[in-house]
Amino acid sequence: MSVWEIFFGNDRYKYMLDGLKFSLLVTAFAAVIGVVIGVVVALLSITDFKPFKFLKGKKFFGKWADFNPFSFIATIYVDIIRGTPSVVQLMIMHTVIFGSVKNIPKLVVAGLAFGINSGAYVAEIVRAGIQGLDKGQMEAARSLGMSYSMAMYYIIIPQAIKNILPALVSEFIILLKETSIVGFIGGMDLLRSANIIISQTYRAFEPLMAVAIIYLVLTGVFTKIMRIVERRMRVSD
């Protein structure tokens, strides 16, 4: 069987195109959810919210004075997500959480699972990006009379984005590759499309190589974009 026959006989390449589309859509969906969750969780983890401050110095309860519930919840979330395999999270989302829901698209289930997963990593990236800044920046902004949120908006976040962006692009590359496990819940992604072609043609080498090359090209494009953005932003450094 020729290579042409493997991919174009019976229009089999269409499986790959559909698979590619699915993989990219899941990645994009998950990336959006991941960034939203990540930014919110990161901001929660750095707030100075201590509702039990009044317990300071009291017997027994004194150690609760520094307790920050927001940052506590953020830590728990990040620890759970990072401490369990993403394929397990995906299965739980599919079979447990959406187990009894009929006709829900695989794209939504996978997008949510990967988004929630990615959110934990994005949160850590964002938190490190903000906390890595010199605290004098916040002080200088506040000393001019800016509120906390103004200082964040005009001074901290623009600088943090510069620190965060390269790591964030790496996270998207990991996410894209990670989506190749959606076959576990029956998602028709790029890898799954190769499996279909393998089962029809009894040839494994060519379809799998094709999948590998497509991933390589995609991640290569991501990396290239990241380098260009980084170079642009170096102007003020």
Binding site: D134, L144, P158, S236
Partner: peptide
Amino acid sequence: VGMVFQQFNLFPH
């Protein structure tokens, strides 16, 4: 009340 810091703290961006 203006303040000037030891480390200047200009906004680098």
